[in-house]
Each structure stands twice: as structure tokens, then as C-alpha cells.
Write a protein that binds this DNA or RNA. Structure first.
Length: 167
DNA sequence: AAGCCCATCCGAA
DNA sequence: TTCGGATGGGCTT
């Protein structure tokens, strides 16, 4: 598998944006570019990974621009390649159908997939989401209204939800 | 095939 | 409010 990636600066900090030939496969947030690259290589150990300059890659450039908008709070859509098991893909697809401003509990999401007892498994799948913000796993919270967890830090989850609530 | 980890949930004390 | 047990998917022995 071929993966190309670049790093951009956004309202949420640095973002590593990576794509296969089919679409975006990883969007990771952080403040250390080296760590972000290492993380990407760890996630796709067998892939052929190459760094590209922002804007110099015809495939990546327009997608990166779109991602930048979305990370900065605007709505939008990009083509993605969800790399994971069948179950994970179902969960991630379902996440992308949740409109901004709306939240669901892990149990509600499990229910909507026809697996009402799989709340915990759904949580696992959310935890493995690689496409920050674009696959909006931050819209899933606990049944009691508390935030639950977030891979890129709970404060960020809170920020994202606040930002969508007003819009 | 068995065991372990986990971004949960629900009921009981 | 805390605590156990049920729970299911994914990964490692």
C-alpha cells in the first residue's frame, strides 16, 4: 500500500494528513511532527510511506485544503479509505452520519448497528479511529452525559463539541 | 483455543 | 457515589 503524507498547521495544532491512492487514511493531531510521523509508520508498518510537500502533490493538495477547513471548524466532506475490520468500518461509517452538534452514547450507537449489547466493543472501535474530526468519534459520549475518552485528549473533545454546539 | 485489555453500561448497596 | 459483573471485538500467546 502506498501512503503519502504532509503536515499542516490548523486551529487545533499540527495535523498530519495521510492518504492512500483511494482517499484519506489518517489524520492525526499533535504538536510534534516527528512523533506524528512515527505514529503513522507504527500504524501502517507494511506500507510504502512517503513525505510530500504541501501543495506539491496533485492528489493530496485539494484534500489537504478541505481537511484544513474542516479542522478549522467548517463543514465539508472528503473521500476517505477506512482501513480496519468490517466491524470497525461499520462503526466509522455510522459516525460519519452523525450531524455536527448532535451526540450519541456508545450504547445508542451500538443499538443503531443492531448490536445493543456491544457498547463496549463500539467504544473500542471509536478508540481506534484514525481520522480525527473527519470521522467524528468526538460526538460519542457516555450514557450518563460524561465525556468518556478521547484519543487526542479530553480537552480537545470538549472544545470540538462546544464549537459544534453553537453552530 | 484461551486469555487479556478496553474511550461502557446497569443494577445493587 | 462506588462496585461488580456482563459484554463483545481485536490482539497476543
Amino acid at each position: 500500500m502506498q501512503i503519502r503524507w504532509t503536515i499542516i498547521e490548523t486551529a487545533l495544532g499540527l495535523a498530519l494528513v495521510a492518504a492512500t491512492e483511494r482517499g484519506l487514511c489518517s489524520i492525526a493531531l499533535g504538536d510534534d511532527a516527528t512523533a506524528l510521523e512515527a505514529e503513522l509508520r507504527g500504524e501502517f508498518p507494511k506500507a510504502d510511506i512517503s513525505h510530500v510537500q504541501e501543495g506539491r502533490d496533485e492528489f493530496l493538495a485539494p484534500r489537504v485544503r478541505e481537511v484544513a477547513c474542516m479542522l478549522n471548524g467548517r463543514s465539508g466532506a472528503v473521500d476517505v479509505e477506512l482501513i480496519g475490520t468490517a466491524f470497525q468500518q461499520r462503526v466509522w461509517q455510522a459516525l460519519m452520519k452523525i450531524p455536527p452538534g448532535q451526540t450519541l452514547s456508545y450504547a445508542q450507537l451500538a443499538e443503531s448497528l443492531g448490536k445493543p449489547s456491544a457498547a463496549r466493543a463500539v467504544a473500542r472501535a471509536c478508540a481506534q479511529n484514525r481520522l480525527a474530526v473527519i470521522v467524528p468519534c468526538h460526538r460519542i459520549i457516555r450514557g450518563d452525559g460524561s465525556l468518556g475518552g478521547y484519543r487526542w485528549g479530553l480537552p480537545l473533545k470538549d472544545t470540538l463539541l462546544q464549537r459544534e454546539r453553537v453552530a
